[in-house]
Nucleic acid binder design. Structure first.
Length: 272
DNA sequence: AATCGTTCCTGATAGC
DNA sequence: TGCTATCAGGAACGAT
């Protein structure tokens, strides 16, 4: 599922391929994905508009158009954008939306479970939408003190995944961050020592950067815009490794459901 | 006010 | 073999 590193990988690809192109038309078989305006209006407003800017905020992708509208795409769990000719792979075959560009190429959304959302925003409604998100963890302004200030009360795993606390962390990277910092996912944030917080801070920066560097994680559905897999999944330590051995201490990795989400951790390295 | 459970969706997998 | 039930999960939403 696309989290910060996956969305960043997609955005880098898009900047390379579709920046400054113009949308000629758009097709969709699943019009439900268009959440805040009817598909017909969406189509009318983006037709023949140039893509002036492409950027990421949290797990959202934003295309800024020449008519001061912006398109916001959230890939949710199984959505990913594909450009032109992409690698043949079952995961790339659930095409729900196609954007036709003025160079004759296609930008498509493949989304097995149809959870993705596409919205059309004017400046103020976009700002309002994005203002709910917490800070960007890879930005310089995300300092150790910033982390301490934004962390709210609760179990660390859920707090790390809360988009209003920090933007961009989901299930994969929160498990990896906690394993790396030797913290149990159910640990209460208020009970974290200064040392533990420092480890979490370093892990957030380190793991997310590594994720971006390796082009994200593709053990289930994520693919880059050419339809290719990211490589972070190869070096992950605990996520979806229940029953395997902890690379640090060889204890069998456990999985536990927390607030509807599975958490993977080493019961020896990550004690409560 | 904050926290919990439910919902959206469909392919893969387990169980009978 | 072939069917059905369960599971995966980001975030909005409704319920407590």
């Amino acid at each position: 599922m696309p989290e910060l590193p996956e969305v960043q990988t997609t955005v880098l690809g898009l900047k390379n391929k579709v920046l400054n192109r113009t949308f000629v038309d758009v097709w969709a078989d699943t019009k439900k994905l268009f959440k805040n305006v009817p598909f017909s209006k969406f189509k009318k407003e983006i037709k023949n508009k140039k893509i002036k800017k492409i950027y990421r905020r949290g797990k959202n992708i934003i295309f800024e158009l020449s008519n001061n509208y912006s398109i916001l795409v959230h890939q949710k769990m199984t959505g990913h954008l594909l450009y032109n000719k992409w690698k043949d792979d079952p995961m790339n075959s659930f095409i729900r939306v196609k954007f036709f560009l003025n160079n004759g190429k296609i930008l498509a959304l493949s989304d097995l479970r149809k959870f993705a959302k596409i919205e059309l925003h004017k400046k103020d409604s976009l700002e309002k939408e994005l203002s709910r998100l917490g800070p960007e963890p890879l930005e310089k302004s995300f300092t150790f003190n910033k982390l301490k200030r934004v962390l709210k009360k609760g179990r660390i795993k859920q707090v790390l995944m809360d988009q209003e606390v920090i933007a961009g962390i989901g299930n994969i990277y929160s498990d990896e961050i906690l394993w790396s910092s030797k913290i149990h996912p159910e640990k209460e944030t208020l009970k974290l020592s200064e040392k533990e917080l420092k480890r979490i801070y370093k892990a957030i920066k380190g793991i997310l950067s590594k994720g971006v560097e390796l082009g994200g994680t593709s053990i289930s559905d994520y693919r880059d815009i050419e339809g290719k897999k990211g490589k972070f999944g190869d070096i992950r330590k605990v996520y979806r490794r229940e029953g395997e051995k902890c690379p640090r201490c060889k204890t069998v990795i456990k999985r536990k459901k927390l607030a509807g989400r599975s958490s993977h951790f080493c019961p020896k390295c990550q004690k409560l």
